[in-house]
Amino acid sequence: MVRIKNRYIVVRIVPQADAKILNFHDGVLAKCVLRNVKKYFGDYGLGIVEHGFRVKYCNERTKVAIIRCLHRSHRTLTATLPLITMIGDVRAKFHTLYTGATIIQCNKFIINHQQKFLNEMVGQIVSAKERNDFIKRVMEFDLEQ
């Protein structure tokens, strides 16, 4: 029996307009990525990437997402991500932060990344209640979608 190997790609979405919260979800993100894979690599590239492709995690506040793909197609996918300029109706770019073999390693990376983000952002918040609410919202990490 052959084991199916996955790769998990952690990306940060950088909108061109200053927006605190982007209104998108994993479905919009998946359609955008697959549309651009087809645009740049054709039907063959779409066929390779589409099998095993899924957006596992998407945080609108920190603008971080985890994308799962098969091992054989991760190079095609990572070559397409920097070329994407529109996500839904928002002009934005993808920055690849990390590529890992397990989702556990990606979780560890995201927690460290979010901790750095918190350290930067908490210093700007004046109220203690707002600070606690902000920390609670950012550290939400739910993979059950």
Rank of each mutant, 00 (worst) to 15 (best):
N6S: 13
V37L: 11
A17W: 00
V14N: 14
V14F: 06
V28I: 15
K38V: 09
K5F: 12
N6C: 09
I21L: 15
V2M: 10
L34N: 02
K5I: 10
A30I: 07
L34Q: 03
V11W: 01
R12G: 04
K31R: 14
R3D: 10
N36Q: 10
R35T: 08
K5L: 15
G27A: 10
G27K: 15
N36S: 10
Y8H: 14
D18L: 10
K31G: 15
R12A: 11
V37S: 04
K5T: 07
V10G: 03
D26I: 06
A19E: 00
V2I: 08
I9H: 08
V28H: 11
Y8M: 10
K38H: 07
K20G: 00
V28L: 13
N23E: 03
A19T: 06
G27P: 02
V2T: 08
K31V: 10
R35L: 13
V28W: 04
L22V: 06
Y8W: 12
I13G: 10
I21S: 11
F24A: 12
F24C: 14
P15C: 10
A19L: 12
D18W: 03
M1Y: 09
V11L: 08
P15S: 08
V2Q: 03
M1L: 11
V10D: 01
V11E: 02
A19N: 03
G27E: 14
P15T: 01
M1W: 04
L22G: 01
A17S: 11
A17Y: 02
P15D: 00
K20T: 03
I21V: 12
I4W: 08
C32R: 12
D26C: 01
A30L: 08
R7F: 07
P15N: 06
Q16L: 12
V10N: 04
L22S: 05
K38T: 04
N6H: 14
K38P: 00
I9V: 15
V10A: 10
R7P: 01
K20D: 01
A17P: 00
G27N: 15
V14Y: 00
V10P: 01
R3S: 13
P15R: 09
N36V: 07
H25D: 11
I21K: 12
L29G: 09
V28E: 06
Q16R: 14
V37W: 01
V11Q: 05
P15H: 04
D26S: 13
P15I: 08
L22A: 04
H25R: 13
L34R: 02
Y8A: 12
Y8P: 03
G27I: 12
K5G: 09
L22I: 14
V10E: 01
V28K: 14
L22P: 00
N23V: 09
D18Y: 05
V33G: 03
A30K: 14
D18E: 11
I21R: 13
V14T: 10
P15K: 05
V10T: 13
L22N: 02
I9C: 06
A30T: 05
K38N: 08
H25K: 13
K5Q: 14
R7Y: 05
I4E: 09
H25L: 00
V37Y: 01
A19F: 08
Y8E: 02
K38R: 15
F24P: 00
V2N: 08
V14K: 13
V10K: 08
I13N: 00
V33W: 02
V11K: 07
A19K: 11
K5E: 14
I4N: 11
V33L: 13
Y8Q: 05
H25Q: 13
R7T: 03
M1P: 06
R35A: 15
A19Y: 03
D18F: 06
